[in-house]
């Protein structure tokens, strides 16, 4: 059974346990993890567990199943750390954290927004509902609405092909050239770049608008073709 134990690594963190998975098939690793928990029940009882899945891609069903199996054992899954944006997104949709206090060494090499004209974008083809928090190191594009109570934080631009009524933060690492566009623009909270935060009671105009920084202040203007060339 030494094999089983080596499939998953468990170590203590300041605020719970961190389980790191290897490259073995998911089914085997899940079985290994659950059997370890069953063996050392008193150790795991009531534990907060973060899961580092590495490069593995976890599907929604698999994550839900694991969380339920864990909760039956009185272990709560609070975070899933992954190198795959798909898995991160899945975890975020289930309300799980995707970062733990100790940053991953890989994070330093991740994509950084320098030129806002290009870069990686996270494309979401759905309505972002209350309670969802999307954080991404590039641009975020939503084909759908962003409802009140939802939050989008992007190091790059945020483009909403739909109604924006939640909270958004573009240029979250301080990039003042970032913009937020939406077909219908009425965010509960809007931030572009470092601390240019405005609380907006703005009503929807029914026309596409764009927010950006001009003279150190966030302004919202009707979107016009050709305007983006100045940015």
């Amino acid at each position: 059974m030494d094999d089983l134990a080596s499939l998953v690594q468990i170590k203590g963190l300041r605020d719970g346990l961190l389980v790191s998975l290897s490259d073995a098939p998911w089914e085997e690793q899940r079985a290994a993890l659950l059997s370890q928990i069953d063996e050392k029940q008193s150790f795991f009882q009531g534990a907060r567990l973060a899961l580092d899945v590495g490069t593995q891609i976890l599907r929604v069903n698999e994550m839900v199943e694991l969380r339920d199996h864990l909760s039956e054992r009185n272990v709560s899954l609070w975070a899933v750390v992954s190198e795959s944006p798909t898995t991160e997104k899945t975890a975020q949709l289930l309300g799980l954290a995707t970062r733990i206090s100790k940053p991953r060494p890989e994070e330093a090499h991740r994509f950084e927004v320098q030129d806002l004209g290009e870069g990686t974008a996270l494309f979401l083809n759905k309505t972002i509902r209350s309670g969802a928090r999307i954080e991404f190191s590039g641009h975020v594009v939503v084909l759908g609405d962003v409802n009140p109570g939802a939050e989008i934080i992007a190091e790059g631009n945020i483009i909403i092909w739909g109604r924006l009524r939640g909270a958004v933060h573009a240029g979250s690492k301080g990039n003042e050239a970032a913009v937020v566009c939406a077909l219908d623009f009425a965010p509960i909270r809007l931030q572009v770049g470092p601390d240019a935060m405005i609380t907006s009671n703005k009503k929807e105009t029914g026309k596409p608008e764009m927010a950006f920084i001009r003279d150190e202040r966030v302004v919202i203007e009707p979107w016009q073709a050709g305007q983006q060339e100045n940015l």
């Binding site: 929604v60 069903n61 899945t90 289930l94 509902r129 209350s130 969802a132 409802n147 109570g149």
Partner: peptide
Amino acid sequence: VRDADRVVGILEAEE
């Protein structure tokens, strides 16, 4: 309605 939206989001995530 805000809470219902949250529930619908969870249901979508759970497929």
